[in-house]
Design a protein around this nucleic acid. Structure first.
Lengths: 353, 353
DNA sequence: GCCGCTTCAGGAAGCGCTTCCAAAATATTT
DNA sequence: AAATATTTTGGAAGCGCTTCCTGAAGCGGC
């Protein structure tokens, strides 16, 4: 159907090797010949067959991403930045989504064995030890995003430090009893956020009663990082911790929305009765006036891609474990007097009147 | 590095053709031989090289999706359902994102020429006439999602009817003067929604003053479908239309959020002063109690994939233009007395107290 | 005019598979 | 037991490209 390199060669009266050199910008070709071939290739609408090239070159110019496909702001934003970073290179993105967690290993196996890609981005997913070694043995570069593994490159948020900062902010506001609602501890970030939170309380000599901690169910594999889980968790907190703590750190903004909904229902006013700090800074955090820790998602994506490409091109080796800092964004939900934020944000519609 | 078909053949003491037949479930092979070969293949961790297979078979088992990569709930949800539908088949998904609109044609050209895929999903993007013919000439099946083209298959929302229903709902509530905030008319859905809206007013013998219509700038290529554009549009409406209409149809929920923010600032209460109906039913519509037209996004994705696969497998031809109906979801923002919605939704936290 | 260089071009081999054709092995019929 | 039909197998050709090796052509210097 479409023109092949042979068609071009025949029409130009040259060998296929010469055509190949022409289209690949090889220096070993006469400039005149090259121009002539290129003209003819153009005329024939010739385009190299990507798969054939890959096979011959042993280079696919494709990178695979393994993503837990929950409809979550985090993953979209991340993918977007990955795409953007990639679009400046010559790599295509192929998407492997893991919807059921138990298929994770099978998916990763496929990525490994099919050799369709030059490198892999694994997002928010733990990697079993066996697999890390498989990747290394296969010589397939991997960068983990939002997760960690000793043997593999990774880019993640400084979760511990972020949680520490969130708690510290509440403490700085004068709160002495602070609760936490967290995702399920099978989630790596959830674990770290809890650690950071506890550390902050400790360092300020504050006690922590476990009744003030609610850990969401890991239902549906989302590790409890969704609105419904936050809603349920807040109801549980109200039930088990009486009176409520004056402040609450919630491990993610989506959960926070659920918390706000439950609070509203129970007549708990925010921030008057309960100061709230979230984590992520999703799009709607601004809308509801939520104080939160902003994740530099775009930077993570960009950084992971940059690193991966370097690895693929063999330009870099050695360990690579980057932790990016989350930034405290102060809005209304924590009841902070100082409004650090810019005007449009302070004008935000917030839940409490 | 990895085992090839030759390695397996040698170790099993058979020819490569036999190995190929074994792993491809060909009926022309002795069951015993097949079992033996499979065992050896397994032992050698043999996995066929996907690219080599594709090249030999002239079949890539990959489908490409061209997506305008705005961080928008709509695209995520759609991609998710596409992925889910695809995961039941043996197709991989390769993502081509168009961030700058002017690169759209170039991206589509690449998809066409590289022959990396067996079919294409084009999401929310218009296709120039020349391209439709190119796809057809190349024998590359295409399904358009959220858009239309005479010559290509498509799956879209019944935008006109949806807008009609939204407007009708407001009219049914007793409103006689209804405004509209729309995305830029270069967007196909925006155009249709305006048509449906106008039609509803006409059919009820209501006048429409153009001052009650605000069309967002197409800034950043998002056709004005974002929160900031909605905010600006609402400010313009307040400025140019005095007194405000009692009801407002907004072409998308994200814009609605901006509208609510602007309304709040201007002291316009929702729904008391202004009844609001949106379009899309994004995740946060529920949270803010927004009445809206729900798009069956997941169904669109599923349907598009199903159709595409059928086309690829040559099981179906002929025209295919499916329009799915949007469903009216009544919440608080329209001030409707009848609450059709389920309990949890009526308990939603809403912007107005 | 010959020699050694350099530059450029042709095309075979190879990437790892599928597929087809012909041949070998086995089964069935006479 | 021979003849024929059927099942099973081997491996060459081909998918469309890159790459390498070889050789031709052009050049300056002697």
């Amino acid at each position: 159907m479409a023109a092949t390199i042979y068609d071009v060669a025949k029409k130009a009266g040259v060998g296929i090797g010469t055509v190949s050199r022409a289209i690949n910008n090889s220096p070993h070709i006469n400039v005149g010949t090259k121009a002539r071939i290129l003209a003819i290739a153009n005329e024939l609408h010739y385009q190299p067959h990507a798969l054939a090239q890959s096979l011959a070159r042993k280079k696919t110019n494709t990178i695979a991403s393994v993503v837990p496909f929950f409809t979550n702001y985090f993953y979209v934003e991340l993918l977007k930045s990955v795409q953007r970073a990639l679009s400046r290179s010559h790599y295509d993105l192929i998407l492997f989504s893991v919807d059921r967690m138990n298929r994770r290993d099978r998916t990763i196996d496929r990525v490994l064995s099919e050799r369709r890609c030059d490198g892999v981005l694994i997002i928010s997913l733990g990697v079993m030890d066996g697999y890390a070694e498989k990747f290394i043995a296969a010589g397939l570069p991997v960068v983990l995003i939002d997760h960690m593994h000793q043997a593999l490159d990774s880019v993640a948020i400084a979760n511990r430090e972020g949680a520490f900062a969130a708690a510290s902010h509440l403490i700085g506001l004068g709160h002495r009893r602070i609760g936490m609602i967290n995702g399920h501890l099978s989630s790596y970030p959830a674990k770290l956020r809890l650690e950071g939170f506890r550390l902050a309380l400790e360092m300020h000599g504050l006690d922590f009663d476990d009744r003030d901690l609610v850990i969401c169910d890991a239902k549906a594999g989302e590790h409890g990082f969704n609105e419904a889980a936050g809603y349920a968790a807040m109801q549980r907190l109200i039930a088990q911790s009486h009176p409520l703590p004056g402040a609450l750190f919630v491990a993610s903004d989506v959960q926070c929305l659920g918390v706000m909904r439950a609070a509203k229902e129970a007549g708990v006013r925010i921030p008057q009765d309960l100061a709230l700090v979230g984590f992520d800074d999703i799009e709607f955090a601004k809308f509801v006036g939520l104080t939160t820790m902003r994740q530099p998602i775009a930077a993570m994506g960009r950084m992971a891609v940059t690193r991966l490409l370097k690895r693929i091109e063999g330009r870099e080796n050695g360990d690579f474990h980057r932790e990016l800092e989350a930034e405290l964004i102060v809005r209304e939900s924590c009841g902070s007097r100082q409004a650090f934020h810019v005007r449009t944000e302070s004008d935000t519609v917030s839940q409490q009147v």
